[in-house]
Design a protein around this nucleic acid. Structure first.
Lengths: 273, 273
DNA sequence: GCCCAGGCAAAAGTATGACGAAAGATCGAG
DNA sequence: CTCGATCTTTCGTCATACTTTTGCCTGGGC
């Protein structure tokens, strides 16, 4: 399970299989919606047309639409048809929705928002962990760091151990909502590693710093030092952030324009194909 | 309650309608799973049996199962049947899943975890808002506070305005992930208000303090003071937390918190000078 | 005795056609 | 011009049949 394929759609987070007719259709339609091919507010083709376009039966199509509806992407009502919902209603904390964004241009935007979230969440999780970690939590953390040390030359193994460490922190926080975020962060980390793999190769002494950073987090948790744990965790994330941005060849500059709402401007797209 | 006018969490967040046969079945099965009637790892009855038990056709049942699968509750594979997934794979950031927890005993547990999350997220969102809020954001915030002031005697209107304020903060952070959390927090706040309605009635001078707290948050954002915004937001949340716990007649903190018996705002991120 | 290949069967996956229900659109009565 | 009954479109639900996947069992080979 640990070494699951790095297939683009990080499966394992959704309760359905990505393979098969329906799975592919979920993927295709989800990505089409996220990509903006179907804009929010727009009503996408009726069931009959979709059946024809994607060559599936009504049952399969409807099950697909139900899934997308459960993820908050669409909303379907009788007589009105199926409409794409406002973007802030999409369930962004869903691995699939995240992955669809990832495969579009917006991926990097989400990535930055995710980093901001991590900067806030993970120090807090570490702080909680410092006060609540049990024996098994500490053992998991220790083991992850040990694996990181041992596999400083094997980047794949290193990445896996790193992911394990961060997930163990969330688990040790004993807060189910934080624990849920762990999986989101884990997916994020896997994407990050894919991006910065080359950068890490270039200067792998950074890995040693990284390990030390993780060690400091663990030490703080181990002695119940919540503030210390939070601080060191923040440092770890910020380090990862800078090296990630370097690998992306992007300025570590956050967004500059907060997205001015343009009421007009969007000319109506013609219906049909 | 059947009143769907402002039925809190249930509809509005999911892309499907809660009414109708399927909606009811989604609700019933989801709640049954969350309640533990079907334990994680356990495989629930096959489609034929479920059809018989709930008196629905196979198509409807399968669409229901697809929804629950999309929310991460279950996982269905050929030949094996439908299994309940590990709890940490459930999509807790889904309004329905949260509502199902709410309707069980676990509701209060989640409530506490949610408060912890808010203590971390909302100050951060306020901090971001201080740096990014645009004109329309500030106007929305101002309007919410004004409405709060005007409706200090009408608790329902007050609650609505309060929710609006917190959502406006998230929006002003211009981070889509935070914006997504806004809806979760909004649902939480509505539940909170239902619980503490009587408590607020008892001593409604607390409302005035509450308003002042919100005003301070706005002022800080308005002058671009990130740290100030974060601190005041934390204060607002902690105030709400204590009054909520008082209303629930529960001990304020069953769990041990790491040295935050008196949560001083001093642990904020150190900012250069 | 262990292991792998192949077939069996059970359950989900897919397809089709029909009817029911909701809700926007239309048009006539007042 | 307003109101409301009716119409019509589209999703909601149902029933049934067929296909595909996959766990499991059987049996032969090493």
């Amino acid at each position: 399970m640990k070494g699951q394929a790095q297939s683009p759609a990080l499966n394992g987070s959704a309760g359905y299989r990505m393979r098969g007719l329906q799975g592919r259709l979920i993927d295709a339609l989800g990505e089409a919606i996220v990509s903006g091919r179907f804009q929010p507010g727009e009503t996408l083709p009726r069931e009959l047309e979709l059946m024809a376009e994607y060559q599936v039966s009504r049952s399969s199509l409807r099950e697909v639409l139900k899934v997308l509806g459960a993820k908050g992407l669409i909303e379907t009502r009788q007589k009105l048809g199926t409409r794409v919902r406002r973007q802030d209603l999409w369930n962004l904390f869903d691995a699939d929705v995240l992955a669809w964004h990832q495969r579009q241009g917006r991926g990097e935007l989400i990535l930055q928002d995710l980093i901001e979230l991590r900067q806030v969440i993970e120090p807090a999780a570490a702080r909680l962990a410092a006060g609540r970690a049990g024996m098994s939590d500490l053992r998991n953390l220790e083991r992850s760091i040990a694996t990181m040390r041992q596999s400083a030359d094997d980047l794949t193994a290193y990445a896996a151990a790193d992911v394990e460490f961060h997930m163990a922190i969330f688990t040790a926080s004993h807060n189910v909502l934080f624990a849920r975020l762990a999986h989101i962060v884990a997916d994020f980390l896997q994407i990050s590693f894919q991006i910065q793999q080359k950068a890490l190769n270039d200067e792998d002494n950074r890995i040693l710093d990284d390990i030390e950073g993780h060690q400091h987090v663990f030490d703080a948790i181990n002695r119940g030092d919540g503030n210390g744990a939070a601080e060191h965790m923040l440092a770890v994330i910020l380090n990862g952030k800078t090296s990630l941005f370097r690998a992306m060849g992007e300025p570590a500059d956050p967004r500059e324009e907060p997205g001015t709402s343009r009421p007009s401007g969007a000319k109506q797209k013609p219906r049909g194909s």
